[in-house]
Amino acid sequence: MERATEWPFSPRCGLVALWMAGALLSTPGSVSLERLVQVAVERGYTAQGEMFSVADMAKLAQETLGCQAELLCGGLGGPNRDRVLQHLISGHPLLIPYDEDFNHEPCQKKGHKAHWAVSAGVLMGVQRVPSPGYIEDSELPGLFHPVPDACHQPPSFPEESSPGAVFLLSKQGKSWHYQLWDYSQVRDSNLQLTDFSPARATDGRVYVVPAGGVQAGLCGQALLLRPQKWSH
């Protein structure tokens, strides 16, 4: 298997995240990272691997991975929050653009550190034991997992104003390890992607940025990925 850590300083972070999401989707066959880059360049989505458009990422995912790709607009909060949490509980990956801090976690740099991550799960603090369809962890009492392919009702989600109650299990292309990120930090970072990095603007490279810039292509947007034959 190719390792995402082979490209720590390249602009391919979005395509690396999509490649990792493809493995989580369990789609037939495997698509290499180089193939994703090739198709993205051929379609005009990127010049060298950068992705500044969630809409283009959706089209690329559908073509190369043969999956469903739902573009989520309006941020990760409000009415979208329950949709995102239920999507992750169902076992499907989420692609999120955000600003990356020195430790890879979300921060707020107005898009100057725009990066991509894939979320593969969610950790939530709930008041009651979940309804049927969940099983308690064999090693950690009080931790419950959804039973794969079983009918289960979603738990009662914590209020959006509850600090530290929801965490996303996330990974990005500069590290091979998952991290737990506070949902509100991810939401806030995703919602303030407005500007193209001055450092990138003067580095002598060519980038593909959509009409309307970073704000139009990334701000408040994410991608819900599902297997092609999945039905709600």
Rank of each mutant, 00 (worst) to 15 (best):
A120F: 02
A114Y: 02
S119F: 02
S131M: 12
P148D: 02
P132C: 08
P146W: 05
G125Q: 15
S131L: 14
I135F: 07
S131Q: 14
D149L: 05
F144W: 15
S119M: 06
L143C: 15
V129I: 15
D137R: 05
W116G: 03
G142N: 05
H152G: 10
P148I: 01
G125P: 00
S131W: 04
S131I: 01
S156F: 05
V129R: 15
A150Y: 01
V147H: 00
G133A: 09
D137T: 04
P155M: 11
A120E: 14
H145D: 00
S156A: 14
A117L: 09
L140F: 11
G133V: 05
V118N: 03
W116M: 06
E136R: 07
Y134S: 06
G142A: 10
L140I: 14
G121W: 05
W116C: 08
A117D: 03
M124D: 06
A117P: 04
L123K: 13
V126W: 12
P146K: 02
V147R: 07
Q127D: 12
G133C: 08
S156C: 12
R128M: 01
P146G: 10
P141F: 06
V147N: 00
A120R: 13
A120Y: 03
A120K: 14
H152V: 01
D149S: 09
K113L: 03
G142W: 10
G125V: 13
Y134Q: 11
I135R: 14
S138H: 11
A114Q: 03
S138D: 15
H152N: 09
P155Y: 06
M124Q: 11
P132R: 01
H145G: 01
H152R: 14
D137F: 05
Q153T: 06
C151R: 15
V126L: 13
P148T: 03
L140S: 15
H115A: 07
A150C: 08
P130C: 10
G121H: 04
P146S: 11
G121A: 02
A114E: 12
F144I: 04
E139N: 10
A150G: 00
A117Q: 07
D149N: 04
P132N: 01
D137A: 13
V118M: 12
H115K: 08
A117E: 05
W116T: 02
G142D: 11
A117C: 15
A117N: 06
D149F: 13
L123N: 04
V122F: 07
A120Q: 14
E139T: 12
A120L: 02
R128P: 00
P155I: 03
S156P: 00
S156R: 13
F144P: 01
P155N: 12
M124F: 05
V129W: 01
Q127A: 15
S156T: 13
H145L: 08
P154S: 12
E136C: 09
M124S: 12
E139D: 13
K113F: 05
Q127F: 00
S156W: 02
P130M: 13
D149H: 11
G125N: 06
A120I: 02
L143I: 10
P132Q: 04
V126A: 11
S156H: 11
R128K: 10
H115F: 07
P155W: 06
M124A: 10
P141T: 12
C151W: 09
